[in-house]
């Protein structure tokens, strides 16, 4: 089958400052994990893919369309949903109102009721705070709302930017299980994550992003143990320490 998402020699950045220097990756039929040091372009890559910032060069194909120059809202309509890092969402709207906005894309409207049911099934906790403004929620709960908002958009591909950032370990496990459940229901994932265990649990195909380039790649089926990743991450010489 053709790839759901295919990125080819992508370059982008902010103003004149280039951040990405020719990144290529493809999802195949797998969940993709991105890792690497902070400030090396992972978030920029995700923002370029979802159309929030423009690519200066290269190509992005999603679901058979060349979406390189598309605005974010059209890409959303194709079924690519991006959960940004640490989103405040809409502080004064309630959970109920926020999820209703999640069903904004036209293609998601007919399945609004079903998607709502699914989101609530995955995150039953949200029902308890249904009519509370989002700003009163904890960081973990807000992350659940953010993922649910994306689920309301009926995604084919879900992009998660550091979903566990700043969360307590117990919440992390809960969130990981929930994301796994989403994946099992047929939604492909692109996940950026610092927690390698978490990443190994969710993704089959890993890319190391360094200096705005793909520095290494672990394909599905290749050995993906913690040790190997740490070595890639920190360089060979640090290997024995981990």
């Amino acid at each position: 089958m053709s790839d759901l998402l295919e990125v080819e020699a992508l370059e982008s950045g902010y103003g004149r400052i280039g951040i990405l220097h020719g990144i290529s990756l493809a999802t195949g039929g797998h969940n993709v994990g991105l890792f690497g040091p902070n400030g090396h372009g992972k978030t920029t890559l995700l923002r370029t893919i979802s159309g929030v910032i423009r690519a200066t060069r290269g190509k992005i194909r999603f679901a058979g369309e060349d979406v390189t120059a598309w605005p974010a809202r059209r890409i959303v309509e194709l079924g690519l949903l991006h959960v940004p890092q640490g989103s405040r969402l809409f502080p004064d709207l309630t959970i109920r109102e926020t999820l209703r906005l999640g069903a904004w894309p036209r293609r998601a409207r007919p399945r609004e009721a079903r998607n709502l049911e699914r989101a609530v099934a995955i995150f039953p906790r949200l029902k308890e705070r249904w009519n509370q403004p989002v700003k009163t929620l904890s960081g973990g709960e807000r992350q659940m709302v953010a993922i649910s908002v994306a689920l309301m958009g009926d995604p084919k591909l879900l992009i998660l930017d550091e979903p566990t950032l700043g969360l307590a370990p117990r919440l992390k496990d809960e969130l990981c299980a929930a994301i796994r459940q989403v994946s099992d229901e047929g939604v492909r994932l692109v996940v950026v994550e610092q927690d390698v265990e978490f990443l190994l649990d969710l993704a089959d195909h890993l890319y190391l992003v360094n200096h705005g380039e793909i520095a290494a790649e672990i394909r599905p089926g290749e050995s993906m143990n913690h040790q190997a990743i740490m070595e890639m991450y920190f360089g060979r010489e640090l290997g024995p320490l981990t």
């Binding site: 809202r73 959303v76 940004p84 109102e97 906005l101």
Partner: peptide, 23 residues
């Protein structure tokens, strides 16, 4: 209404509005 909610939302977080597909 959903459009009214969107107007309120755009006041609070424009980036997030783009990411749920709003114009």
């Amino acid at each position: 209404t959903r459009v009214g909610l969107a107007l309120r939302a755009v006041a609070q977080n424009e980036d997030a509005c783009q990411l749920v597909g709003m114009n």
